[in-house]
Design a protein around this nucleic acid. Structure first.
Lengths: 179, 179
DNA sequence: GACTGCATGTAACGCGTTACATGATTTC
DNA sequence: GAAATCATGTAACGCGTTACATGCAGTC
């Protein structure tokens, strides 16, 4: 079962700590990962349903508890080994990039538009965002926040380097596309 | 109409050069962007159908030509302005990251597993991939290839920096998660 | 007659988003 | 009694993937 994604694994990881129902999972996710891509309720419930169907998770209690009916799920053995395997396997690094910025530049050049301004505009947005993030990082309370901010900052920097690098090569690229 | 994605825009961009049918679009994409995420036929056809439905593209000829029936599409005025707006608008840069590696480290720490080995394993994979890409870049024929390789290389480097950076902070993070 | 290449799709599924529906309990 | 919070979902859609279906034309 190597098909599931990191969303499924987060839920498995949280359920490994203790059985929980969907609402609690959502709250704990929001609390622990406020700066990661948010998870909606609907996504949590549908992901739980799939995990259940695939035997990585089991319904251990239903209807009990205060308030409306709740469904408490627990991780299964096969869920634990799935999680373990995920942790042990590095992220794939050989996937071809989406290259949205590259696409923009290429399509601009192909159609004889100004690719320069595309890169300049992106550069400005990146600079602004880096300043924001640097400020946010300085006032961060938890170390996890700064570590995550650094992740984004490093990649924004990588983009900036590429933007500058590519700006210098625009003439050569243009010739390649319109010979 | 700001909803469409870069896949839609690539097709629009190619169709702006000349009307084409799906099969040709696929071939031209493969030729021009062999190192980007591949587009399947099914995706091209369904994307074309959506573009048609949204008025960004129009069917200009059907059935004509040698071989089986073909459907030739042309970009519309509204398609051109969509493309232009896409080129003029920088990529959003304020979206929260997916942070898969961050998630792995966090979940490892939460469950008392070795987060160190997670980062080490990832580091090794990254190093290997960087060597491969550097070699590929050296033997690249087109400048577009090297520019795209640089994009990936810069981001692999950013990941590596983050991996090293985070490795040094593991103790602090661990304390934060298990107080 | 079989195979390859050309050309177009459909079906089913995964994952994600937005919007909506349903009820029960707690609080004012 | 109204409103907020708790808790669970469904429906419809977008985009992407894999697998499968169809049928024509030219080649061996």
């Amino acid at each position: 079962m190597n098909t599931s994604t990191s969303t499924q694994r987060v839920l498995l990881g949280l359920l490994e700590q203790a059985p929980r129902h969907g609402y609690d999972l959502k709250r704990e996710y929001d609390e622990r990962f406020p700066n990661l891509r948010p998870l909606r309720f609907s996504q949590i419930y549908s992901t739980l349903a799939r995990l259940d169907r695939d035997g990585l998770v089991t319904l251990v209690a239903e209807g009990a508890g205060q308030g409306p009916d709740r469904k408490e799920y627990a991780i299964t053995d096969s869920g634990v080994s799935d999680l373990e395997q995920w942790l042990a396997t590095p992220l794939p690094v050989d996937e071809p990039p989406r290259g949205e910025l590259f696409l923009k530049v290429t399509l601009a050049l192909l159609s004889g538009r100004e690719a320069d301004t595309v890169l300049e505009a992106q550069r400005a947005v990146h600079m602004t965002r880096m300043r924001e993030l640097t400020a946010a990082k300085a006032s961060a309370v938890r170390e996890a926040e700064t570590v995550l901010a650094d992740y984004t900052l490093f990649h924004l920097e990588a983009d900036l380097r590429w933007i500058d690098h590519t700006t210098k090569r625009l003439r050569g690229l243009a010739q390649e596309y319109r010979p």
